[in-house]
Design a binder for these strands. Sequence first.
DNA 1: CCTTTTTTTGATACTCGTTTTCATTTTTGT
DNA 2: ACAAAAATGAAAACGAGTATCAAAAAAAGG
Lengths: 224, 224
Amino acid sequence: MYRILVVDDEERIRQLIRKYAVFEGFVVTEAADGMDAVKKCREDAFDLIILDVMMPELDGFSACREIRKSQDTPVLMLSARGEEYDRLHGFELGVDDYVVKPFSPKELMMRIHAILKRSGKDARPVQREVVSIESLTVDFTGRIVTLNGKKLDLSPKEYDLLFYMVKNRNIALSREKLLRDVWGYDFFGDDRTLDTHIKLLRKSLGPLSRLIITLRGVGYRFEA
Amino acid sequence: MYRILVVDDEERIRQLIRKYAVFEGFVVTEAADGMDAVKKCREDAFDLIILDVMMPELDGFSACREIRKSQDTPVLMLSARGEEYDRLHGFELGVDDYVVKPFSPKELMMRIHAILKRSGKDARPVQREVVSIESLTVDFTGRIVTLNGKKLDLSPKEYDLLFYMVKNRNIALSREKLLRDVWGYDFFGDDRTLDTHIKLLRKSLGPLSRLIITLRGVGYRFEA
DNA sequence: CCTTTTTTTGATACTCGTTTTCATTTTTGT
DNA sequence: ACAAAAATGAAAACGAGTATCAAAAAAAGG
């Protein structure tokens, strides 16, 4: 799990980056200017810092220099078009990559991954995330579910639903929350959809369907 | 202890490279143009030469050609953006790698290490990396794939894709991740690209294509 | 520079899963 | 026991995601 610090004076830009970065599984912290960034770096350790060049208070380069005094966190610089002349300046400070505004968030994400990979942090072997409950084994990493050692053949939605419930086991999950989190924010579906999938999942789980507890008038709970 | 010759007419660039290279434990010598470089090469033996393409007196290619008459020192070329057309030209001269300016010093260092390792001066014997799954053998070191002892003739991308999947076997790999990691962070390709290559790979793998599991709505998983 | 191979793209077919509907049954709380 | 909520079953309509093919484009090799 990577922690990223996004530093830009424009709220909109920060939000944009946050949205995409969170989607990629990064933990995002924001700072509105260089001073703020330096302060946040003292308090927290980040795996990557995205720094805008032009900022009030303390510009990106100065902030980078300041941060580098104590840490070696990889830095990705954002600069407006026309500021390209100071690329070299940035590289002297140990900047890892440059992205010119306006940028494509997708490309930014790709560059982030490239930097993390280069910095070796990405090289660590994936640690599997596996949860076992009685005879049920849920392998989040491999997207594999076994029951008594036998692989279960679940449909995508069954996987998603099971994964979500297992991740949030022993927690009362309302129908609304399930629909929202498993199906997505923009889902306006029928309640029966959930019913049906719970039914299918119970069927797949066989005897262990008893782990899915119905909370009448509320939703469900996965018991472990 | 490696000795590196840095050839560039810009003092600033030389300083930048020197700073990083020294930090990595290299011994750095500088030359300001091609003539100077050729002269320094006659006086001293280097383990690697970093050559800028555009230089007064004698350009990088000519200098490279001149040096290569008497020595076989690995060469890494630096070229400004837009000069990429002469990559081919460089490789014909036996250039070992190319870096486009402006570059990230960290990446440059990585490439330097890669060249030195490749040039065999790193005397330690390579240990082969081989994975066998059923009748399939994947030799990462030799870039060889055999099926029932018979060598498979795969296209470059098929190799890359298979290697990546085998290295990350039993892990659910999203389409996005595959495209990003196998194709590179600057790839904005069509989803069909992946489909097609999966298909080709499956065809090549014949009966063992069953090891490539389709994860609907997610991506693929290589099963071992 | 031309030929061959590889890769990418676009159109199309098709499979499979999802969602919805509806009627019926079961469970649960009061 | 009654009413409300949930489960069940089956089936139809629907849609998204994937496979496949052929052709174009790009890259590699001679």
